[in-house]
Amino acid sequence: MRLLGGIAESPFLISRLNPNSTATEYGGGGGFTGGWIDRCHGFLHNTLLVAASLFFVAYLAYEAKKSFSKLSNRRSYIMIAYYACLWLVSLLNLAWCCLQAWECTPGKELGWNLMTSFTTSGMLFLEVSLVAFLFQGNYASGAQALTRTFLISGFIIGLDLLLKAIFLFGFGVPLFTDNNESTQKFKWGVWVIHKLLLTAVYGVIFLMYNSRWRERLPARPAFYKYITTMFALYGLSLVASAFTANGAHFGFWLYGITSVCYHSLYLPLLYITFLADFFQEEDLNLENVYYSEMKDAGFFDADWE
Rank of each mutant, 00 (worst) to 15 (best):
83 Y>D: 12
169 F>T: 01
40 C>M: 01
155 F>E: 07
150 F>E: 07
188 W>G: 00
276 A>N: 12
59 Y>M: 10
77 Y>E: 14
151 L>D: 03
130 L>Q: 12
264 S>D: 06
239 V>M: 09
164 K>S: 06
154 G>L: 08
228 T>L: 14
122 G>A: 09
129 S>P: 07
41 H>N: 12
290 Y>H: 10
214 R>P: 03
74 R>A: 13
47 T>C: 08
244 T>G: 00
254 L>Y: 03
157 I>M: 04
114 L>H: 07
178 D>S: 14
271 Y>I: 09
69 S>I: 03
282 E>N: 14
14 I>C: 10
299 F>E: 14
55 F>T: 08
213 W>F: 15
166 I>W: 07
236 L>E: 01
199 T>R: 04
211 S>H: 09
295 K>E: 12
79 M>E: 13
1 M>H: 11
165 A>M: 09
236 L>M: 12
4 L>E: 08
73 N>K: 15
26 Y>P: 00
213 W>T: 03
262 Y>R: 06
95 A>S: 10
157 I>D: 07
71 L>K: 05
70 K>N: 14
284 L>D: 08
182 S>C: 00
195 K>T: 11
156 I>F: 14
93 N>H: 08
286 L>C: 05
26 Y>S: 10
78 I>R: 13
145 A>V: 13
91 L>K: 03
235 G>H: 01
138 N>S: 08
284 L>F: 04
162 L>F: 15
111 G>F: 03
275 L>S: 12
7 I>M: 15
188 W>Q: 03
201 V>K: 03
68 F>K: 06
250 F>T: 12
64 A>Q: 14
17 L>Q: 13
241 S>P: 04
40 C>V: 11
267 L>C: 06
63 E>Q: 13
296 D>A: 15
97 C>H: 05
246 N>V: 01
288 N>D: 10
148 R>D: 08
190 V>M: 06
265 L>Q: 03
60 L>D: 02
165 A>H: 12
23 A>M: 13
114 L>E: 11
248 A>S: 04
271 Y>T: 06
152 I>Y: 13
241 S>E: 07
48 L>S: 00
83 Y>T: 15
283 D>W: 05
199 T>G: 12
10 S>Y: 04
140 A>E: 15
183 T>G: 00
259 S>D: 08
88 L>Q: 04
79 M>R: 11
45 H>S: 05
249 H>E: 11
292 S>R: 12
65 K>N: 11
83 Y>H: 15
161 L>G: 00
57 V>P: 01
149 T>L: 12
238 L>T: 08
131 V>E: 00
74 R>C: 05
78 I>A: 12
180 N>G: 00
31 G>N: 07
200 A>K: 02
58 A>W: 00
21 S>F: 01
293 E>Y: 12
156 I>M: 10
1 M>E: 09
96 W>D: 08
93 N>C: 13
259 S>H: 04
17 L>D: 02
166 I>R: 01
96 W>K: 03
301 D>E: 15
175 L>W: 08
159 L>F: 09
235 G>L: 06
92 L>W: 14
43 F>A: 03
37 I>L: 15
28 G>Y: 08
164 K>P: 02
